[in-house]
């Protein structure tokens, strides 16, 4: 078996053994969902709010929560813990491609992200939220969100490799967090104020959110879906290339 898969299996096993690290990933996005819907649902009733396309406001908010959950990856924190504890050097002293060390951890984020996205969609189901694009739409959403989880975790791993510090890696995730809110998180992009619309248009997270939202509310809008997957693809290629470069040059 490829060393990346061997290390991914180890990382996944660790994730399962640390449910306390997984719970906030589920709890905080659900908390945001409930709070945002609670605050704004009356402003945006199903009838009379065209952008909801017949669903309630929770369906509009669900993609934001899915993306938030995907931005809570633990790969970087475990990596920096291993750097500080010395196990990272132990792995580097084995004759495996060094890229496997970071790619293995990243790969383990995929099933975790799929699991969390599925749980969140199921939780939203009793509240009347439906995926307009059906099963295929659900699959595209979890794939997209898993891709975003890899982009975010890849960036954090890069930070971990560069700083070798748990504190700096933690702070780094806080720096990226505001990006989640410079998005059309409460209303569609065209209804934002002009400065916010410009900021949201420059923010790649916007396109991921709009893709998940279009699949939830409107069905298959291929131009929107294409933009979302392009953003994730480019982000993934860039973060993977930078992470692999960083681990290969680690001294």
């Amino acid at each position: 078996m490829n060393t990346t898969l061997i290390l991914a299996r180890r990382a996944f096993r660790e994730g399962i053994r640390q449910p306390d690290a997984l719970l906030p990933t589920l709890f905080i996005p659900l908390f945001f969902l409930i709070v945002n819907v609670g605050q704004a649902a009356k402003i945006f009733p199903t009838s009379g709010t065209p952008f909801l396309a017949g669903q309630n406001y929770a369906a509009f908010q669900l993609p934001m929560s899915l993306i938030t959950a995907a931005s809570f990856g633990t790969a970087a924190l475990y990596l920096v813990e291993e750097i500080e504890g010395g196990y990272f050097d132990k792995l580097r002293a084995t004759p495996i491609p060094r890229a496997s060390i970071v790619l293995g951890r990243l790969l383990a984020e995929v099933p975790k992200s799929i699991l969390i996205s599925t749980v969140m969609i199921l939780v939203a189901f009793p509240f009347g939220v439906r995926i307009r694009a059906g099963i295929g739409g659900y699959l595209l959403i979890v794939l997209l969100i898993a891709g975003w989880a890899l982009v975010f975790s890849g960036l954090m791993q890069l930070l971990a490799l560069k700083t070798r510090s748990a504190a700096a890696t933690n702070s780094g995730s806080l720096v990226f967090f505001p990006l989640l809110f410079l998005t059309p998180s409460l209303v569609p992009r065209e209804q934002l104020s002009r400065p916010m619309e410009i900021a949201a248009s420059l923010n790649p997270v916007t396109y991921v959110m709009e893709t998940a939202r279009s699949l939830t509310l409107y069905g298959y809008q291929w131009a929107t879906i294409g933009r979302g997957f392009l953003v994730v693809g480019v982000g993934l290629a860039a973060t993977l290339a930078l992470s692999v470069r960083a681990v290969n040059r680690y001294d």
């Binding site: 078996m1 060393t3 061997i6 180890r10 096993r13 660790e14 053994r17 640390q18 291993e82 504890g85 010395g86 196990y87 990272f88 050097d89 132990k90 792995l91 002293a93 084995t94 004759p95 495996i96």
Partner: peptide
């Protein structure tokens, strides 16, 4: 190689750690 800090993955069992090391070789 056994470095200054006992470089171990504390979330694994001893057996899992040694088996993983073997697979990496």
């Amino acid at each position: 190689v056994a470095l200054q800090e006992a470089g171990l993955d504390l979330r694994q069992t001893g057996r899992e750690l040694l088996q993983l090391q073997g697979r990496l070789f």
